[in-house]
Design a protein around this nucleic acid. Sequence first.
DNA 1: TACTATGTACGAAATTATTCGTAGTTTTAA
DNA 2: TTAAAACTACGAATAATTTCGTACATAGTA
Lengths: 125, 125
Amino acid sequence: MTKFKPTDSELEILHILWEKGASSVRDINDLLNTRRDVGYTTTLKLMQIMNEKGLVKRDTAARTHIYKAVVRENETKNNLISDFVNVAFQGSAMNLVMQALGNTSSSVEELSELKSLIAKLENKS
Amino acid sequence: MTKFKPTDSELEILHILWEKGASSVRDINDLLNTRRDVGYTTTLKLMQIMNEKGLVKRDTAARTHIYKAVVRENETKNNLISDFVNVAFQGSAMNLVMQALGNTSSSVEELSELKSLIAKLENKS
DNA sequence: TACTATGTACGAAATTATTCGTAGTTTTAA
DNA sequence: TTAAAACTACGAATAATTTCGTACATAGTA
């Protein structure tokens, strides 16, 4: 299995592609600009680099190229978590989970969702 | 409150300082070299930069300077989590928690520890 | 048609992070 | 006492990321 390691900017674009599906550079740039100023050619360059890296694929049939994510959301996030856990929590994912949970205010609904995930995990073992 | 954003290398050093307490560059470099090759002056430079940034403080009374972490482990990790959640999980810490948990194999002990944390959180609300 | 908007390609500047060599000083030990 | 070892300071090379300008082609429109 290959290792995906998108940069922060790349990840920002991947989130858009995961949510919106295949998109043009214009679409993506417009969405990015609802949050912060980004030049069109900046976004374009990023997409080209992501294409080279194999993070996205593009359809160049029409003049306006259409990009879609190649890497899957879950897989990518799992890789990111695993790197993050290694760098910041010395390998202990549970450590991260506990700290993230303790640091956040959670709703009753979220907590009960979490509890049922735990129940599932307990049944697996 | 100031925002700490240690880089990966800086974090690696902070972990050592948090665990071992105040240390010389030599101490730290030796520990780093149990994992990978790092030149002594590379580590030295890093420590000097961390000092400038205010991540560490040093005692220069003796020829061999002694460095200690200024930023606290919990606070730093919370900042890291919060950044990570923003970049990779679009702000939802619970999302991160669920995915990290689902992606990891957890022991019965860990899960019950987690459950008691959840119980605590439930009582708070 | 001819002007404007929209698109791609690409080079390169700016920034940040990492790495290390060299110079020069002090300490240690043969 | 002198040679080797250990230490700091610092400049600079390298690499990765982000940003954008410029050139040029195509499409739409007045």
